[in-house]
């Protein structure tokens, strides 16, 4: 049996600090006052980097501290807690999001590296109350138990189908190998992906 190879070894502690006081100075005074009220000292505020992104179709402006990962920015600052932290080391896949259409481990991506990018999280897949076909297939095939890995599995599954990597079952398994499911829903996840792939719906 093939052992999965850890694909990303980098720890978030090794992040390179890219923030500079210069970028912080570009922030409007209004935001400055707000940050002050927010119990953050002005000094630490000047370390923050302002970012603009499109998240789930909406333009978002956010100020982040140095070293904050895309994952923690989404979860702690924007309240988008659908994306999960399972390891913070790139090993589990529960933090997968789409960045400009490509799947990315949000725990390994520094928030500041995503300036100007388009991000899709699990919250952005459904169209209002209408679930995305992959979400529907996951429910129908019971492709989860606890549901904690599920946002990451679904994002990966969407990328898998969109990128044309969902040919054979073997191919799907290989592609999905970065996403651990400790509840062991693997066979149902594969069945769900195949159904969604063959549904004829736009993925």
């Amino acid at each position: 049996m093939e052992k999965p190879t850890p694909v990303h070894g980098e720890s978030r502690r090794n992040f390179i600090k890219k923030t500079t006081a210069l970028t912080a100075l570009a922030v409007t005074p209004g935001a400055l006052v707000k940050a002050g009220e927010n119990h953050e000292s002005i000094a630490s505020f000047f370390e923050k980097t302002p970012l603009k992104m499109e998240i789930n179709g909406k333009a978002v402006e956010v100020l982040v501290d140095p070293g904050v990962s895309l994952l923690d920015m989404l979860r702690e600052q924007l309240g988008l807690t659908g994306t999960k932290k399972g390891c913070d080391q790139g090993h589990c896949g529960s933090c997968m999001v789409l960045v400009d259409g490509k799947r990315v481990n949000a725990c390994l991506s520094e928030a500041t590296d995503n300036n100007g990018k388009k991000i899709t999280t699990i919250e952005g897949l459904a169209d209002g109350d209408k679930l995305h076909p992959v979400q529907e297939a996951f429910i129908r095939h019971d492709a989860f138990q606890c549901g904690y890995c599920t946002p990451g599995q679904i994002i990966s599954a969407v990328a898998c189908i969109r990128e044309g990597q969902a040919g054979s079952e073997k191919e799907i398994r290989e592609y999905m190998n970065d996403n651990i499911c400790r509840c062991g829903a693997y066979p149902n996840i594969i069945a769900a992906i195949i159904e969604a792939r063959d549904s004829g719906k736009k993925i």
């Binding site: 093939e2 999965p4 850890p6 080391q89 290989e174 062991g184 693997y186």
Partner: peptide, 17 residues
Amino acid sequence: DNLGSYLVPRHTDVPYI
């Protein structure tokens, strides 16, 4: 003590059951 070297089953380890 991490999921990169404490190996839990992944997709490619699990057949249809």
